[in-house]
Design a protein around this nucleic acid. Sequence first.
DNA 1: AACGTGACAAGGC
DNA 2: AGCCTTGCCACGT
Length: 109
Amino acid sequence: MKRSGFPRTYDLIWEAVRLVPRGKVASYGEIAREAGLPRQARLVGYALHALPDSSGVPWHRVINAQGKISFPPESVAFRTQCRLLRKEGITVNRGAIDMRKFGWLRQQE
DNA sequence: AACGTGACAAGGC
DNA sequence: AGCCTTGCCACGT
């Protein structure tokens, strides 16, 4: 990543990710909207990839619109994300997240 | 400065 | 249900 000074779009995205409460997840698209960048879900993935480790941003709560983890199933990142989610009480099987935990605003439960 | 590449999404077949 | 296309836009070559 590259910090060049003024408000980068990544900051907006990271800020939005911080809003996702423990025990809930949100999609890349939702994060993009919340960050004021509608239809730029792709950018969210890019921004998370550029995230420094010690940021405290709950990146693991962001999953794709199909309700699944967007990492190759056997990757280290995939397993890490599973572990972090389960630690928050979210059930994950084969990368699929319990949809009842989806969305942190306008909850459907 | 153009071009390909992404932890995506939505729509068409 | 899959697979392909298009929209998107910051980054590294």
